[in-house]
Design a protein around this nucleic acid. Structure first.
Lengths: 373, 373
DNA sequence: CTGAAAGCGCTAACAT
DNA sequence: ATGTTAGCGCTTTCAG
């Protein structure tokens, strides 16, 4: 059904062609005909503290003091140094500073699956903000949610001597990080706890969210409630499933294994799982999505139905309000901020027992969410 | 309409309370009762090349060679070094390496508005992937789309001696970066060109996308087509508007200023703008969204209508296919990758004139997009 | 308040 | 194939 119409004609070049190969679409390039100052000039060299010191007629240490904001510099000297620095376009080299200061940089690493996943990028946004408030910089690396990539990617971050490591664990075992902890690099696990490693972590209250959703559905008269989730071994899935079961048990409803789907790993699979549920002899009258991808798949099915089933999503999304979909909401950005706070705290207390911060989830009820059965 | 139901009870602590203050929701914390190896032990010290060299009975330089993958090391020596390194849990310090190698790190900075914006995070995802393929690391900083923040944030990145700077410009003037270019740090502007600075850039073919969309609407019989865009001074908005006008002109349709909205800065404003358009004496029969936030606002209006208007969005979104919405699509990840390729190329050619890579946009037509008027 | 010397951890440039 | 020397740019002693 979707038709593609390419609005442009081609042109060529190594960089553009790479894009073209990837997208299958002609890429053009505009070369500046003539724009003000012409060709860039070759590289000069960067000024160092010594250069500034020489020009200002002081010692290197004094320049250092000025840029460190030390108070023990006379106002005149400070002015002179700053002028010299400006003239030379001096910019302190934080690599050198960090090295001298003991080999720990002012960066914090966040290692997660893939930034194109909205959940991870929202967590990253929270991390970035909280770090910025503390004068720290975020470095990001992706594992592509591949267990086999984790150790290498994490290793690269540790070589950068990051001040702490915020990790969404994906490998079956994080024991390889034990040494780092001992060396004083805080490791904070995000969204799910580590395995074989004693660490602090930040997780959502997944079970409570699922429980609240199911409780609400039951209160609206539903007795046949299904759960559409992803990989059964995934921590979040387990927790949400546990909450779902707990709510049913509390309502005196017997569990039905055929109502629990663990195969909705993406929207397409979720759609398939949903159709399978609806094709059961006794189909569910209400569905709980185990994650946001499942929501998309479920909605794809529900959109076309005359008599739509009740549905609660997990993880809020842009059009949920417009479509009147109830969801278990949470705040990924807050999870990121909490992770940073935990890291900063741990920095100064290497001996306290591990902590797990649980970030709340809550039910957002909307118009057509819990339709009566 | 939305009701909030907090599934959890409280507990307290500095870190958790911060979350609580922010979310207004009680946060709990689980302290590990007893989990395997108990309290973390105090920090030891990190092994250096010298330590490894001593244990392996070689010189520091040899250790360095082994870790640099140099071929001029005998297999036996290499093994001995690697064993010693493993025993000491040695991890090369890339701060020191980068410093020694000339003060340029193996990181690339991406400075954009805000990672919680899906567009930016998708660009970031593309950047991260392309960098990873070249053994480079991504450092990210946000300007919050505040012009006043740009220079400070960029400055912090430059102090890190990033190998190049990928920037979504927001300040009215990037002239302050002229010095960096001369010093050999590639500056690549992303999504919009710089002002007062000669640099390479990557942009979308915004005008062509808008033009194709309007052309399609016109072909479906629409003569009254409106444009719902955001800030009039924004480069992308200008380009898209230009394409919209061009398509109308090509069809011999006179422009109507009242059909051009420049105030849809977010979904709510877009909704308002849409309602205003529909309330005109001669309302448009088709709408083109200028960006993804506008799409959300427009859809909110259209969802409730019996006789929906035709609508083409700008920027594809998760539920577009499900909802049958036509869109001008583009690939933000590809934009990120192109930016990295441009940066790497510029690295080795500081003298070529600036280049602008134009990444394609294309029209994706879906079921209910261009309804007849 | 300021400076001289030493060195963070690593790797170019020479040796050998 | 391996070692020695020196020094990247900065900041920490420790003096003045």
């Amino acid at each position: 059904m979707p038709a593609v119409d390419s609005p442009r004609t081609a042109s060529s070049d190594a960089i553009a062609s790479a894009t073209q190969a990837r997208t299958g679409i002609p890429v053009q390039e505009r070369t500046a005909d003539e724009s003000g100052p012409s060709a860039p000039s070759p590289a000069l060299s960067r000024a160092t503290v010594t250069d500034v010191a020489r020009l200002a007629g002081v010692s290197g240490k004094t320049v250092s003091r000025v840029f460190a904001g030390s108070s023990s510099v006379s106002p005149e000297t400070r002015t002179r140094v700053l002028e010299a620095a400006q003239r030379l376009r001096f910019r302190p080299n934080s690599l050198a500073r960090d090295l001298r200061r003991g080999g720990v940089s002012t960066t914090v690493a966040f290692v997660m699956g893939d930034l194109s996943n909205a959940f991870y990028s929202k967590v990253a946004a929270g991390i970035e903000r909280e770090l910025a408030e503390h004068g720290l910089t975020l470095v990001i690396a992706a594992t592509d949610d591949e267990a086999a990539h984790e150790q290498r990617v994490v290793g690269a971050m540790l070589e950068r001597r990051v001040r702490s490591l915020l990790l969404v664990p994906i490998a079956p075992d994080q024991g390889y990080l034990e040494g780092e902890r001992q060396l004083g690099t805080p490791v904070i696990c995000v969204d799910r706890p580590a395995r074989n490693l004693v660490t602090d972590s930040v997780v959502f209250d997944n079970a409570a969210g699922a429980e609240a959703a199911v409780r609400s559905l039951v209160q609206h008269g539903h007795r046949r409630v299904a759960f559409v989730g992803s990989a059964p071994t995934l921590y979040t899935h387990e927790e949400r499933l546990a909450g779902y079961r707990r709510a049913l048990a509390a309502a005196g409803i017997a569990p039905r294994p055929e109502y629990e789907r663990h195969d909705a790993t993406d929207a397409t699979e979720a759609e398939r799982a949903t159709r399978a549920l609806l094709a059961l002899p006794e189909p569910p009258t209400a569905l709980l999505a185990g994650n946001n991808k499942a929501s998309v798949g479920i909605l794809a099915v529900r959109q076309g139905m005359l008599q739509p089933f009740a549905f609660v999503g997990f993880d809020d999304f842009d059009l949920a309000a417009t479509l009147g979909v109830s969801v278990v909401a949470h705040d990924p950005g807050e999870m990121g901020r909490a992770a940073v706070r935990l890291a900063l705290w741990r920095q100064d207390d290497l001996v306290s027992p591990p902590r797990q911060v649980v970030v709340p989830t809550w039910l957002v009820q909307r118009g057509s969410g819990e339709l009566a059965p």
